[in-house]
């Protein structure tokens, strides 16, 4: 218990729960289940975006003890659809980490790109970088490769895995793709009607 990065006990929010699970460093999770089973709602509740109840701790520290913005910086949720509030890509980043951008195939010129001209896949990958830049400990990824081709998917998987190794972080990855779940080699969980069920087949 003490070595768990993120521990969740009796998390409940409207449709979902109670859900209990432990996310251990070096042992990430892959979450699957039919649409409407509550995967997104579960991730949103862990990030404390929706009204919810339950004991959620990061490194043993209850989330009520830290401010909500700080909690979401450390337990970061990446929605399936990325949203951008300024016109240029660079305005959404705090700094420019060349290596990080290069890992997903972007060079320095990307900061001047207009968000409205990005392809769906580019928006997706940039949203991931935008999140990683803030160095979260837990990544809650809602189908992060849904619109990517196989090359970009593989690159994204590699980036996330390398990030977790280097930053002592772990992820919960929602994926509909059995091959991807296999590749990630993570513990598998199945969501059904708002409840968490052991490992998926």
């Amino acid at each position: 218990m003490s070595d768990s990065l993120l521990s969740i006990k009796d998390l409940q929010s409207g449709y979902i729960g109670p859900v209990s699970l432990d996310l251990v460093q070096g042992r990430p999770l892959v979450l699957s289940g039919p649409s409407g089973s509550g995967k997104t709602l579960l991730l949103r509740s862990i990030a404390d975006l929706d009204l919810n109840h339950g004991d959620v701790r990061l490194d043993g520290i209850a989330r009520e003890q830290i401010s909500a913005p700080l909690w979401r910086r450390q337990v970061a949720y990446l929605p399936a659809e990325s949203a951008w509030w300024r016109s240029r890509v660079g305005e959404h980043f705090e700094s420019f980490d060349e290596q990080l951008f290069a890992s997903l195939g972007f060079d320095k010129s990307v900061v001047d790109w207009e968000v409205s001209r990005l392809s769906t896949g580019e928006r997706h990958r940039l949203a991931l970088l935008r999140m990683l830049e803030r160095e979260p400990r837990v990544l809650l990824l809602d189908e992060p490769t849904a619109n990517l081709d196989p090359d970009k998917t593989a690159a994204t998987e590699a980036v996330v895995q390398a990030y977790c190794r280097e930053h002592d972080a772990a992820y919960i990855w929602v994926s509909h793709d059995p091959a991807q779940r296999e590749r990630l080699g993570a513990r598998q969980l199945l969501m059904h009607k708002g409840q968490l069920q052991g490992s998926a087949a």
């Binding site: 910086r73 990325s82 509030w85 949203a127 999140m131």
Partner: peptide, 22 residues
């Protein structure tokens, strides 16, 4: 209308005050 945008900012650790500022 801008729910996704506001929540994207909250997700990145912005406070409510920053997220609604625009």
């Amino acid at each position: 209308q801008q729910q996704a945008m506001i929540e994207a900012r909250l997700c990145l650790g912005h406070s409510w005050n920053e997220a609604i500022s625009d």
